[in-house]
């Protein structure tokens, strides 16, 4: 199949950038979206044009590196699917496809479709961990965890940190990302010790990094390739309200 692409090209963070039109020729419906871009890039290199820069790593939907807004939807039209796992059979011959980078103040564009998602790492560094004293290795299952809690914690832990929630949010908020980590750890006995501090510090860092507030548009859940649900944001909100019982010095 043949497609018309409009791709965001931006040389550097300072460059203002713009959409450029390219053709994708003889694309197999079995190719992934990134393989399609590989073909386009080969063609651009042959023509002496700078290839399109885009992020990717595992190409199997687990690392969270791939990050493109395709026709206005983060990770493209297929539900719960990363760009690298999106196949060209989701498109028709002759389609026009707009490809843009994640857009948010906290995600500055580095080049073309590549953005700097370091802000998410800094949110995790601020509180997305449990403090453990080193020593002998504890026995497996020494701490019993109800199956329902561990299942739910695992659902939250599915977040791959791709940032699609931020890209899809009209407010550029990272609440779904933050809530996944807050809920994941608050649900487990090892994590609930620091739950109050974690929710306060992580949401504070989120705002300092320039993300927006949550307006409950629920766009994030629709965009998440891992199906993280907004019920984790409600959980985060409950964790915050619980934390109000503790004075700031105690956090």
């Amino acid at each position: 199949m043949n497609l018309a692409l409009f791709v965001w090209r931006q040389k550097s963070p300072a460059d203002s950038g713009g959409l450029q039109q390219y053709e994708a020729r003889d694309i197999s419906p079995d190719m992934s979206f990134l393989e399609m871009l590989d073909v386009v890039n080969e063609d651009l290199i042959k023509k002496g044009i700078e290839p399109i820069a885009f992020d990717h790593d595992c190409r199997e939907g687990i690392c969270g590196m791939c990050s493109q807004v395709i026709n206005g939807t983060a990770h493209g039209p297929q539900e719960k699917t990363t760009v690298c796992q999106l196949h060209m059979r989701n498109f028709k011959d002759g389609d026009t496809i707009y490809i843009e980078p994640w857009r948010a103040k906290a995600f500055p564009v580095i080049k073309d479709l590549v953005v700097d998602r370091g802000a998410l790492d800094r949110i995790i560094q601020s509180g997305g961990y449990v403090s453990v004293s080193t020593g002998g290795v504890p026995d497996a299952n020494a701490i019993l965890i109800p199956k329902a809690d561990s299942d739910r914690a695992m659902d939250a832990a599915e977040c791959i940190g791709c940032g699609a929630c931020v890209a899809a949010c009209p407010n550029g908020s990272a609440m779904l990302f933050v809530s996944a980590k807050v809920a994941h750890l608050a649900l487990l006995p090892q994590g609930c010790v620091e739950a109050a501090r974690r929710v306060c510090v992580m949401t504070e860092t989120m705002m300092k990094e320039g993300f927006g507030n949550c307006s409950n548009h629920y766009e994030c859940q629709a965009a998440c390739p891992k199906g993280i649900k907004v019920s984790f944001i409600a959980k985060l909100n409950r964790e915050f309200i619980k934390s109000l019982a503790k004075p700031s010095e105690a956090l």
């Binding site: 009209p170 927006g212 507030n213 548009h217």
Partner: peptide, 21 residues
């Protein structure tokens, strides 16, 4: 909150397709 949210999304997409909002 509205002002902060606007500031957090300075550049709009060329194509926007909201799914749940």
């Amino acid at each position: 909150i509205t002002l902060e949210n606007r500031a957090a999304k300075p550049q709009a997409y060329a194509v926007t397709k909201t799914q749940k909002a």
